[in-house]
Design a protein around this nucleic acid. Structure first.
Lengths: 168, 168
DNA sequence: TAAAATAGTACTAAAAAGGTACTGTTTTAT
DNA sequence: ATAAAACAGTACCTTTTTAGTACTATTTTA
């Protein structure tokens, strides 16, 4: 089912919590654990990963805790997944990788995998964390622009997919 | 890495082979096995799944074999993944599922998962199998329309994501 | 100096994936 | 008729990945 692993799943839940309480000064692992019903060790582990990936800032000591390193509309779901679960690709067989696949020499569609991976990545890189906290949960046609990260952000990718067809 | 399982990976390779030899009358499991360097039992297993999922037709007997049930431009990568790997969703926690998640009652972002799943599914459902056999492997901006399944096909989904922003 | 928080590492049990083997059924050609 | 070549279905086992926990060290504040 191409499922996210639990860590990543939990990570999105946790970051959504941060996004919702973005005004609060710092949130501790204990705080998050209570709010999400996830075990403290589990939460702690994921927070460390998010820290290492640059999505959170941390402060040690008795008044320490974590906070988002950027605004929720400048962090994408795709980026979160990449931090917790590695590259946003459905296969490791791309034009750039070498030797990962034993049938590589005979594989005739190798260059085409890039298209699948790109379509997938592009879709998730455009979905901002802030869309997880918006009052209306489901995207309607009119919401689609509001719930997208715009071109001027930090994302290098410039390809657009799913362009509106002018014939309908 | 949100990776496709091997069966699905192989399945796309196999169906791409069918797409490429769409004029040939029937292709046997042995034929596919030779062409892809995948073991015969493996190929056989996947072909059966694809048959069951309605993507292939089969004929028994000594002159038997398999063929695509539709044209390659009417089969989407997303559909293939759904047949071989289940629903195109990154989490099983959606508004429609019940009881799959033990922290369900305390999960505040449950309705929002649908957005992630939809973005993902929509991207892959629009990518046709025929794009795997096109001479130019990578999508350029101008290719994007050519390599998309159009609205008039059998897909019920009508949402579009990633619309071009008129400010750039 | 004690308490509350982050930082880092290592281990283990459970679940999923990947692959193979075996047996049965259908059709064609001799 | 019967053997061969292909599809059809099921069950099993091994390996890998995932999920979760435990333990220890470090930092900061009151």
């Amino acid at each position: 089912m191409i499922q996210l692993n639990k860590h990543t799943d939990y990570g999105i839940v946790i970051l959504t919590h941060f996004a919702r309480y973005n005004d609060a000064p710092l949130l501790s692992a204990k705080n998050i654990s209570d709010a999400t019903s996830l075990s403290l060790p589990m939460v702690s582990k994921i927070l460390k990963q998010l820290l290492k990936g640059g999505l959170l800032k941390s402060y040690q000591g008795v008044k320490g805790g974590y906070q988002l390193s950027r605004n929720p509309d400048e962090i994408s779901i795709g980026e979160i997944i990449e931090v917790l679960d590695g590259p946003l690709a459905l296969t490791e067989c791309t034009a750039s990788t070498q030797g990962a696949c034993k049938t590589e020499h005979s594989c005739s569609i190798k260059p085409h995998w890039a298209a699948i991976n790109r379509v997938m990545r592009d879709a998730l890189i455009k979905l901002p964390l802030s869309s997880m906290t918006s009052p209306i949960p489901l995207w309607s046609e009119n919401d689609s622009k509001r719930n997208q990260i715009q071109e001027k952000t930090f994302y290098p990718l410039k390809i657009r997919i799913g362009e509106k067809n002018e014939h309908d």
